[in-house]
């Protein structure tokens, strides 16, 4: 059997008296899109930060490439586990400046031709290469942000509500981009969304996080067979209270 892309063993994170992630265990299948859904404040973003070490878990183990993430140099780990955030933060400068950033951090550079390839991959015309990043629309920024993360060729992609601030057309463009990327390259993707329909459209498996606990974990197709009361309430209530 194929080894999982990521395993969580009893992972918790607390801040002071606040228990933000509570004893989460489970495995992420390689090559799948796994959706993380749950009400806002459930701990989804925090879980992502634990995976790429932007925050350190309090207890438990996260296993990546059959090694505890604690044994990695954080810089190496973060190149292998790429993250794309909702805000699509841009560094000052052009689209090209943003795309070459990951390479520059390694003391290398991204040739123009390669930069164009990355833009094409996310469905942006190459004429945008020299556009100031702050002049882009929300959807375009998000595509640049995805391309920028892809420059590191991560083994796992973490997407945190990347379509939440976009209009429907841009959101759908990005959705189809990600699905085709997942199909073509068997890229493992973890996808946070508060949009249950999006999770159903995109994902092979779903984890439901509520109040720091993972209350459902399994095929997205079986989501509506979940027995847990909180999960059922969440699924019926849409985005929740």
């Amino acid at each position: 059997m194929k080894q999982p892309a990521l395993s969580f063993i009893d992972v918790s994170f607390s801040k002071g008296d606040l228990h933000i992630i509570k004893n989460i265990s489970g495995e992420i299948t390689a090559g799948n899109i796994t959706a993380f859904i749950g009400p806002s404040g459930a701990g989804k973003s925090t879980l992502f930060r634990l995976i790429n070490q932007l925050t350190t878990k309090t207890t438990g183990e996260i296993i990546f490439n059959s090694q505890s993430i604690d044994t990695f140099n954080p810089m190496t780990l973060r190149k292998k586990v790429g993250v794309v955030l909702q805000e699509a933060v841009m560094i000052p400068g052009t689209v090209y400046d943003n795309l070459r950033l990951p390479r520059q951090l390694e003391g290398r550079d991204l040739p123009l031709t390669e930069a164009k390839d990355f833009l094409r991959k996310v469905g942006l015309e190459e004429k945008f290469l020299h556009t100031k990043a702050k002049e882009l629309s929300g959807g375009q920024k998000q595509k640049v942000s995805i391309a920028r993360t892809l420059v590191n060729e991560p083994e796992i992609l973490l997407m945190d509500e990347i379509t939440s601030s976009l209009d429907q057309v841009s959101a759908q463009a990005i959705e189809s981009l990600i699905t085709s990327f997942n199909h073509d390259e068997r890229q493992t993707i973890l996808w946070i969304t508060h949009n249950i329909d999006q999770a159903k459209r995109l994902s092979d498996e779903t984890w439901v996080l509520i109040d720091g606990e993972c209350l459902y974990q399994g095929p997205t197709a079986d989501l509506y067979n979940a027995t847990d009361k909180h999960v059922r309430d969440f699924l019926e209530g849409g985005d929740g209270p």
Partner: peptide, 20 residues
Amino acid sequence: QSQIELILSLGGSPKQAIHR
């Protein structure tokens, strides 16, 4: 903060992240 964390999340060192 978000720009600094962006650079960290792309595998940059603290020095690279805070350089600007």
